[in-house]
């Protein structure tokens, strides 16, 4: 096992595993958020459960933060290493002839997502941590829906969400299938996996955009 973490394949697999974890998180985040469109009470109940369950707060939340930080840090490290593998660039380079824009520009779509996450943390996570663990406010199981709706009042914030999720969609259009390829999944199920990945990459970010626009225009 010695030295495995220094190998290109180990880095790639670690990057892919963090990506797959984040894909699962994104799906559950979407499903919970989507309930806000259907039922205020259901959204409050689920948010209250997520915000107070000890397993989620003490175990899953640190794992999630680690996965997010790891994915970004490793992304930057890999980008720097890859750029330095070709010090003299081509005068003429036709990347569009053999690869998708998304696959060649993961770092840029990733940077937009990073900027979005900073905004998202300022909007939701930091106030939530402050509310619960610094000010020790008494838990109010009905507060979540109102906080969500309030955040989507600003057209600027909604605009930032729309742009960010469009970039997330581009990121996932390459990233979904790529993460499975990295962990060695490529065979007879690949066409189905690719098709599922495309639907996932388009529908989930589109769903998040819908939720933001729904609350912006309905309140």
């Amino acid at each position: 096992m010695s030295g495995i973490l220094n190998s290109s394949i180990a880095r790639k697999v670690a990057m892919a595993l963090s990506a797959i974890f984040l894909l699962i998180f994104l799906l559950q985040h979407f499903l919970i958020n989507f309930t806000s469109v259907i039922s205020e009470n259901l959204f409050n109940e689920l948010s209250h459960f997520m915000g107070t369950n000890i397993l989620i707060q003490a175990v899953m939340q640190p794992v999630l933060i680690f996965a997010v930080v790891f994915h970004f840090v490793m992304g930057f490290i890999l980008e720097a290493k890859n750029k330095s593998a070709r010090k003299i660039k081509y005068v003429s380079y036709n990347g569009g002839a053999n690869s998708s824009w998304m696959s060649r520009n993961m770092i840029y779509s990733g940077l937009v997502i990073l900027a979005f996450l900073v905004l998202h943390f300022i909007d939701f996570w930091i106030p939530e941590m402050n509310y619960k663990y610094i000010q020790f406010n008494p838990e109010d199981p009905t507060r979540y829906y109102g906080e969500l709706v309030h955040k989507f009042e600003s057209p600027l914030r909604v605009g930032a969400y729309v742009v960010s999720f469009a970039l997330l969609s581009l990121h996932l259009l390459h990233g979904f299938q790529s993460s499975f390829q990295s962990v060695g999944c490529n065979g007879k199920y690949t066409p189905a996996l690719k098709a599922f990945g495309k639907y996932f990459a388009i529908l989930i970010p589109l769903g998040f955009i819908f939720i933001a626009l729904f609350h912006h225009f309905n309140h």
Partner: peptide, 22 residues
């Protein structure tokens, strides 16, 4: 072989698929 590939200074694969096409 992977160790030697890394020692030679090649970059990491990011699954763009350009290699397969070309």
């Amino acid at each position: 072989m992977v160790r030697q590939m890394d020692l030679e200074g090649f970059g990491n694969c990011t699954n763009t698929g350009a290699c397969e096409i070309e």
